[in-house]
Structures are given as structure tokens and as C-alpha cells.
Design a protein around this nucleic acid. Structure first.
Lengths: 139, 139
DNA sequence: CCTTGACCTTCCCCTCACTGGAAGCCCCAT
DNA sequence: ATGGGGCTTCCAGTGAGGGGAAGGTCAAGG
């Protein structure tokens, strides 16, 4: 198989496949004309990589996951540990983004969004306290 | 003020402040010795940038927000539009991450995590269907 | 036989928002 | 004079590829 076929079958761009070879994730053979020559096992690995990347694993995570996959004497605990650490990072990111979302949602809600210049979003960014609830009292 | 003072007072690393000057977000004066010489307005802008960045706005968003902030005849609708678009992107990212989290959580839950090699996480990544619920039937 | 066009190769630069480090100047204190 | 800290610029690197140029290869058509 040439790279175009593998790209079509794996769903990964040819550029990405070359990159994965560059960094040593796959090692396709070469035909006499210098073209990469992929076997089914290469395709299988690429599909594995595609799925792992879609789950947000980093390239280095993928490298370890592949090594574990190919090590028939692995302990599933090692895989689970990797996955759990990744899960923690994802949850941290979600929490960060949710905090941003909440703040932004609040700001957007408070902004009239008309043609007047008065804007609580800019006020907040500039460090002025918001004053949309006068009864809560200022300093 | 020299850059060290501004860094301390704004909470931004000196490197970042120099970078912001590089890309034209701030334009501090220079002392005779070539040192950057920051005024209070520069500090104010940096604080603005820090808050906008903390809300996840890109540098280009920040550039526009600053321009709007300094334009006294702006329409708050323009600011709101920017913020809303950013909010949409954040929500899309949250959704992506949540999907990853859900899949990963499921996989982690199904993995024994002991010293045996059998691992549903690797099975899933390799493309084999999971078979933890036999009664749900195969193909 | 020659050309055309699709496909393949390598190579280098670009992204985004910084961060690290090297080499060298400036300033103050001793 | 010297030492140390702060300041300057410039270069390179990050993660995970993407864009595109310059050139080799292959199969089909005229």
C-alpha cells in the first residue's frame, strides 16, 4: 500500500503519517522507487494512533500505549495508570474552561450589546468593579 | 518603572511583557540607557491583557478588545459579539473534552488494572469491540 | 515515443503564545 | 575596580502537525 491508500483507509492525512514515521511511531518499508510501502500491521498501528489521539492522548502517551500494546506481558495496571492520569488532566482542563465559561457567560449577560459604549465586559477586563447590583454596595 | 517592577505588579513574566511589546500590544517608552520605561497606563494595559488572556481570549482577540476599550465611541454590541464567539468556542471545547472524558471513564472503569495483560483500554484502541456485556450480543 | 496528470519524495517555514538561554551592556554598592 | 543583579537583543524550542515548493515516478492516452 502507498501512503495515499493508507491515508484513505486510516482517515489520517498523509502529512500526519509521514510525521509519525519521522518521530518513530511507525516504520513502514520502502519500495525500490523510494515510496513508503505499508503493511496491514502499519495500518493497524495508525488506526490505533488515530483513536488514541482522538481521546486526547499526547504523542508520548501514544508511544507508551503502543509499547504496552505490543508487549504481551504487560500489566493492565500500567495502561490504566496512563489512562487515569490523562483523565485527570482532561478533567482539570474542563474545570478551567468551565470557570472561563461561567465568568464570560455572566459578563455577556450583563452587557446590553447595543450601540452605546457602556460595556461591563470591558469594565471588568480593565479592572473596574462591576456595579450592576447597586444594593450590594460599593467600597 | 522598569520591566521588573511591572512584571511584579502585573503578575506577568518579563518575557511576556517584552513579547507583548514585540507584537505591538503595548508601546512603553525607553530611558536613555535603552531600558523600557513603563507608565501607569502601560501597567493598566498589561493588567487588562492578563485578565483577557486568563479568560482564554487569543492575542488577536485581546488586540481587538484593547482597541475597543480605547475607542470611546465603541458599541458594546461589538464587544459582546467578540465575547459570545469566544464563549461558543469554549463551549465546543468543553463538549469535546467531556466526550473524551466519558469514553475514557468508561474504559478505565472496565479495566481491571492488575498485573494481568488483558486490558479493555488497549482492546478498544486497537479496534476490537469490547465484550464486557455478553448479553448485549455481538454482530 | 512523448506528454499529461496524479502521486510520491524531501525540505523548509508557519502556526500560538510564549519560554529558556546565551552574549553583552548598565548601574549601584563596596 | 569589581561583583552581582537587572536590563538588552537575538536565537531556538515547544506540540502536533499544515502549507507549499522543487523534483522524481508511474500509468494512461495520443
Amino acid at each position: 500500500m502507498n501512503i495515499g491508500d493508507v491515508a484513505a483507509r486510516s482517515g489520517l492525512p498523509a502529512k500526519t503519517i509521514r510525521y509519525y514515521e519521522d518521530i518513530g511511531l511507525i516504520k513502514p518499508h520502502r519500495s525500490e522507487n523510494g515510496y513508503r510501502c505499508f503493511a496491514e500491521t502499519d495500518l493497524h498501528k495508525l488506526a490505533f494512533l488515530g483513536r488514541a489521539r482522538a481521546l486526547g492522548f499526547t504523542i508520548e502517551d501514544c508511544r507508551m500505549l503502543m509499547a504496552l500494546y505490543e508487549d504481551n506481558s504487560r500489566a493492565s495496571a500500567d495502561v490504566k495508570k496512563l489512562a487515569n492520569e490523562h483523565l485527570c488532566k482532561i478533567e482539570a482542563k474542563i474545570a478551567d474552561l468551565q470557570a472561563m465559561r461561567d465568568t464570560l457567560t455572566e459578563l455577556v449577560k450583563c452587557c446590553a450589546g447595543d450601540d452605546r459604549p457602556d460595556c461591563p465586559i470591558l469594565k471588568d477586563l480593565s479592572g473596574e468593579a462591576m456595579a450592576d447590583t447597586p444594593e450590594s454596595g460599593g467600597a
